[in-house]
Amino acid sequence: MLVIALWWFASAIGYLDPRILSGPGTVLSTASDLISSGRLQDNVLISLQRAGLGLFFGVTAGVLLAVAAGLSRTGEYLLDGPLQIKRAIPSLAMLPLLILWLGIGEQMKVTVIALGVAVNMYINTYASLTGIDSRYVELAEGLDLSRAQFIRKVVVPGSLPGFFVGLRLGVTASWLGLIVVEQINATSGIGYMMFQAQQYAQSDVIIVGLVAYGIFGFASDAAVRAVERKVLSWRRTLAG
């Protein structure tokens, strides 16, 4: 609040050059212009689609890999090593190679986002899966649980805490990936809109983009946390 008030004041007395940083009023009216022209919605929609698709493929791949590595020795042997190495290489560093392979279209953008998400999902889900108490495995054996029941009642709930840690990191990773891919040869999306604005020194448009990113980042994290609280309500935590 204080920051906004200061910002307002500095702009009003002309201390801030609009080319460096537009005043809050300008930003607001630009935002409403962008909305009434439909430009903001179009770009937001395409950005959300990219992030959503990347998140979807990343989560699916990460979980499948974690299950494959967590439930079979062969899977662990084949998958865990390479994925732990992959973890050391930031997904964004793969960008040149992915552009070379997939071009600069949507496919590359979604892949970059999905890669970052998948690694986070894998690492955390796998850790949680292999960390399930062996006493519960013994219990399942004593109760003659079938393989399907064992997975449904023991493995899945037992690995959910790690899944949610992975999901929260994955959501953050998907926004990060989105921001980067939208700065590179994009022709649409919030990042593209901001990049264009930079060329014309429209700091107000840039700020609208930043706010949009901020809102989506915050809202998605809050959504994941809400689902997590609901699903993991059995947990006794410090937060109560």
């Binding site: 006493r135 003659d144 009642k153 993991l232 059995w234």
Partner: peptide, 20 residues
């Protein structure tokens, strides 16, 4: 039955009892 009760923390008591 074990020294620890070994109830699955993510299942309600009734679901633990009827597990399997």
């Amino acid at each position: 039955s074990f020294q620890d009760s070994r109830l699955l923390p993510w299942l309600r008591v009734i679901d633990n009892v009827t597990l399997g």
